[in-house]
Design a protein around this nucleic acid. Structure first.
Length: 364
DNA sequence: CGCTTTTGACCGGCGC
DNA sequence: GCGCCGGTCAAAAGCG
């Protein structure tokens, strides 16, 4: 099972506000995504075993303990992490804050549609500024984010290609990009989650190339930096093991993929597909925004009519499927077709599914 | 041979 | 201004 929690400051502490996504599947694990400042916490549970069922937790009640004990191998066991940034998760995502960001939103990191059905849940107001999501599940690969910093990151770097001349100048400058000083580089939306895993680098369906590794202060474990290998795709991710709990891996994603997941392409995601409808998975990263919006709208409508919504996202953002309701905590959550597709489209399930499941279905 | 990982150097931001 | 730290670069090594 995966437990996903949304925490405001994942890193430092798991806050109340959190969403927990729990999935219990064969080999699934628990992950918790935490988004900063998420007003309410919600939990989502998915039981993969059943085939893609998921439930979302309800909003208000005190957030469940972040630590779940499951094990899985994919990213999807998330645990709350903290992303260093102070910025709100929404900011990072570039999401309209009016709509409370949801975990899903986060995943998709894309623009969100206006809520068609305002959720009753109050949490919304709170979302103001958090920006990162963490999850603390206990599964195979989890990681937490720490986006804090200032990141000077580089997204902005255009550098490389940019001017070769610069390179000539100095090697010293090699990496420099003429960034404008005043202009801090804009950070791409980031999303972090923690997963309990023995493997540091989780298989999330995309291909990554490691471009750096740094020792982390106050932690015996190094942080690894990965970049999506697809041409033109600037998505990056950081992976580090929690010093508090070595079994937990914190993964932070930054940016949006501009291409489909190799896995998807290959049809690896099958797991949930067929029966569950997770099939044609397209993670949020994969979908062009315009298209994504359309899908969302359609999906939203679908949700509205969904007869048995099991998941509920409590943020004010109605966005994601309002149908996700928290009804099923603890039990095997089930996704309605529309829900499934929603998750799928947003990359939730896809991302959440442990690689194991995708690759080698286990029994657990 | 091509791609990925390793690893030391370097840069920019931030705090003191 | 200086030092620390996070993040990135790129050459070299490793691997299939």
């Amino acid at each position: 099972m995966y437990t996903i929690q949304y925490i405001q400051n994942p890193y430092m502490e798991k806050r109340d506000t959190g969403v927990t996504l729990k999935t219990t599947e064969n080999s699934m694990a628990n992950s918790t995504f935490i988004a900063e400042e998420m007003p309410t916490s919600f939990a989502l549970s998915i039981s993969a075993a059943a085939a893609a069922s998921a439930a979302v937790a309800a909003p208000s009640p005190p957030p469940p303990p972040p630590t779940t004990t499951t094990t899985s191998n994919s990213i999807f066991d998330m645990i709350p992490c903290d992303i260093g940034d102070q910025k709100g998760f929404l900011d990072l995502l570039d999401i309209n804050q009016d709509f409370a960001p949801s975990l899903f939103d986060w995943f998709q990191a894309g623009p969100i549609l206006p809520p068609q059905q305002p959720l009753p849940s109050p949490a919304s107001s709170a979302l103001p500024e958090s920006s990162e999501v963490l999850n603390n599940p206990a599964t195979p690969n989890s990681s937490s984010i720490s986006s804090s910093s200032n990141e000077a990151g580089n997204d902005g770097q255009a550098s490389k290609g940019g001017d070769e001349e610069e390179q000539d100048q100095d090697k010293t400058k090699k990496q420099l990009k003429p960034k404008k000083k005043n202009q801090k580089r804009q950070r791409e939306p980031r999303f972090a989650f923690m997963t309990k895993s023995e493997v540091d680098h989780l298989d999330d369906g995309y291909r990554w190339r490691k471009y750096g590794q740094k020792a982390v202060k106050n932690s015996p474990y190094p942080r690894s930096y990965y970049r999506c290998t697809s041409a033109g795709c600037g998505v990056k991710k950081r992976v580090e093991r929690s010093s508090d709990d070595p079994s937990i891996v914190v993964t932070t994603y930054e940016g949006q993929h501009t291409h489909p997941s190799p896995i998807t392409t290959r049809g690896n995601i099958g797991i949930l597909t067929d029966s569950t409808g997770f099939g044609a998975v397209s993670s949020p990263f994969l979908i062009p925004q315009a298209q994504f919006h359309q899908q969302l709208q359609q999906q939203q409508q679908a949700y509205m009519y969904s007869s048995s919504p099991t998941l509920n996202i409590t943020t004010n953002s109605s966005f994601p499927p309002s149908s996700f309701s928290s009804s099923l905590l603890g039990e095997t959550p089930q996704f309605t077709p529309s829900q499934s597709s929603w998750l799928r489209d947003h990359g939730l399930l896809q991302d959440i599914v442990p690689s194991q499941m995708r690759k080698e279905p286990k029994e657990e």
